[in-house]
Simulated assay, not measured.
Amino acid sequence: MTLPRKPILSMVLAAGLLAAGALSAPAQAQRSMLFSGTLAAEHGASAQAHGNVVALYYAGAHVLRYTVTWDGLSGPVTIAHLHGPALPGKDGPPEVTVHGPYKSPLSGSVMLSTETERDLMDGRIYLNLHTQKYPNGEVRAWLGKSE
């Protein structure tokens, strides 16, 4: 019995693409690091505001992919930044702007400089959500390595 050539060729190509994806996925996963943090009120903001950040950092590409969720803020988020370097309880300057639209959940990615990458690895970076009522930041989450 002979099978038509086009379906066989299609199956071979599909199998090759699946195999290539399977081989590249673990390599990419090995090069990522998981970071997370819990949003907490700051600068005298309401203690009712809360949320979290989950992020994967791909060191080879210098890319941080994130998802941020929040609730209970005094109003809409006007801007979001990664701040640092700073120690917990201290303020640091904005290093990277996290672009909107600012609706929860907020997902995206940013490129990090060598300095910001070092600060992230050292636990000196936090995500800050700014609102009109709290222009210096209403909530922040320190990004720490997760296992």
Rank of each mutant, 00 (worst) to 15 (best):
K6T: 09
K6R: 14
S10M: 08
L13C: 13
L13Y: 05
A14R: 07
G16D: 08
G16W: 05
G16I: 07
L18C: 10
A20S: 12
L23I: 14
S24M: 03
A29I: 14
R31W: 04
F35A: 05
F35H: 03
F35G: 04
S36I: 01
G37N: 07
G37D: 03
A40W: 00
A41C: 08
A41H: 04
E42D: 05
E42I: 12
G44W: 05
A47P: 04
A49E: 04
G51L: 10
L56N: 08
Y58E: 14
A59V: 11
G60R: 02
A61W: 00
V63L: 11
V63P: 00
R65V: 14
Y66L: 07
V68E: 12
V68A: 09
T69W: 04
T69F: 02
G72K: 08
V77E: 15
I79M: 11
I79P: 00
H83R: 11
L87E: 14
L87F: 04
P88H: 08
E95V: 02
V98Y: 06
H99E: 15
H99S: 15
P101T: 07
Y102Q: 11
L106K: 07
S109N: 12
S109D: 10
E115C: 02
E115V: 13
T116S: 06
E117M: 12
L120A: 01
R124W: 03
Y126D: 13
Y126F: 12
L127M: 12
L127G: 05
T131R: 06
Y134M: 10
N136L: 07
G137V: 07
R140G: 09
W142K: 05
G144E: 03
S146I: 01
E147T: 06
